[in-house]
C-alpha cells in the first residue's frame, strides 16, 4: 500500500499548495485522484516521486510511505528503485531521442532486464514497434502517450502514477488508454490515476478522491462517486436530470496553463 498522510507542500517557501492531504492506494487497486485545474494533483505526484525539489517546493508536514516504509523526501532515483514509476503530465517524452532510447531511459534503474522489457513493451504497443528506431518527437499524440506509459513500465514498477494520461487525446484514444490502464492493473501493477476526465477515471477505478485547492474534499467508492449528485454536476458534466452530454467533445475543454520549467 502506498500511503500519503497529512501532506503539506509549499512552493518557493511561501505558496501553500497542499494543506494536509491524506489518501491511500491499496495494492492491486486503481485509485483515481480528481480535481480541477490548480487543485494540487500534480503536486501530490511530485511529492511522492521526489520531484518537488526541482520545482523549488518542499514538504513541510506529513509523510509518505510504501508498504510501511517511509519514503518521504527520498531522491527520485531511490523512489523509482522502490518500485514507483510515473507518467508525467504532458508526457514529457525525450522527443530528440529514438523510441527505443526513450524506453531504455525508463529502464535506467533496471538494467538487468532491459532487453526483455523493451521487447515486452514493444509487443504491447505495435505502433511503437514499427517506429522503434525513429525519433520519438515524430510520433502522434496518442503514440507519445503510449510511449510515456511504456517508458514508465520499463522499471517494472509495483506502483504506476499517471498524471492526466487522457489529456488532449481524441475520445477513441481515451478509451484505448483506459483499457490499457486496466490491462496494466490486471498484470499486478497498482495504479494512481490523476485525471480531469472524471468519467473515464471513475469508470475504471476502485476508489476515488476529489481534491479542491489543496484539500481532499470527498472520497468514496468510484461507483458511488459516479452516482453522487454533486460529482455528477461538477465533474461529470451531467445536468440535474442526469442526461449525459453527447460526447467527450462537448465536455468543456480547459486551457492548459503555462508549464513551469518546461
Amino acid at each position: 500500500m502506498l500511503s500519503v498522510q497529512n501532506l503539506e507542500v509549499v512552493y518557493q517557501d511561501v505558496i501553500l499548495v497542499l494543506r494536509g492531504v491524506s489518501f491511500e492506494i491499496p495494492k492491486g487497486k486503481i485509485v483515481a485522484l480528481l480535481g480541477s485545474n490548480g487543485s494540487g494533483k500534480t503536486t501530490v505526484i511530485r511529492s511522492i516521486t521526489g520531484l518537488l525539489d526541482v520545482q523549488n517546493g518542499d514538504i513541510t508536514k506529513g509523510n509518505i510511505s510504501v508498504d510501511g516504509e517511509d519514503i518521504t523526501n527520498l531522491n527520485p532515483s531511490k523512489i523509482v528503485e522502490k518500485g514507483i514509476a510515473q507518467v508525467m503530465e504532458g508526457r514529457r517524452i525525450f522527443s530528440e531521442l529514438t523510441v527505443v532510447e526513450n524506453l531504455r531511459l525508463g529502464g535506467h534503474t533496471n538494467s538487468a532486464n532491459i532487453q526483455n522489457n523493451i521487447d515486452r513493451v514493444l509487443d504491447m504497443f505495435p505502433a511503437l514497434k514499427d517506429r522503434q528506431k525513429g525519433e520519438a518527437g515524430y510520433l502522434s499524440g496518442g503514440e507519445q502517450q503510449m510511449l510515456a506509459i511504456g517508458r514508465a513500465l520499463m522499471s517494472e514498477p509495483e506502483y504506476l502514477l499517471l498524471d492526466e494520461p487522457s489529456l488532449g487525446l481524441a475520445p477513441k484514444l481515451v478509451d484505448q488508454i483506459s483499457v490499457l490502464i486496466q490491462e496494466i492493473n490486471k498484470q499486478g501493477v497498482t495504479v494512481l490515476l490523476v485525471e480531469q476526465n472524471a468519467n473515464m477515471a471513475l469508470n475504471i477505478s476502485d476508489h476515488g478522491y476529489i481534491m479542491e485547492t489543496g484539500n481532499i474534499v470527498m472520497d468514496n467508492d468510484s461507483q458511488k462517486l459516479l452516482n453522487d449528485e454533486d460529482v455528477r454536476e461538477f465533474y461529470l458534466g451531467l445536468n440535474a436530470e442526469g442526461t449525459k452530454r453527447k460526447s467527450f467533445k462537448d465536455v468543456k475543454h480547459y486551457k492548459r496553463k503555462k508549464r513551469w520549467l518546461s
Binding site: 527520485p76 532515483s77 510515473q86 514529457r92 517524452i93 530528440e96 531511459l105 535506467h108 522499471s155
Partner: peptide, 12 residues
C-alpha cells in the same frame, strides 16, 4: 533535453 523528465526516470 529535459532534466525533470530525466529525474523522473530515476536518472541521478
Amino acid at each position: 533535453f529535459d532534466q525533470e523528465a530525466a529525474l523522473a526516470q530515476g536518472i541521478n
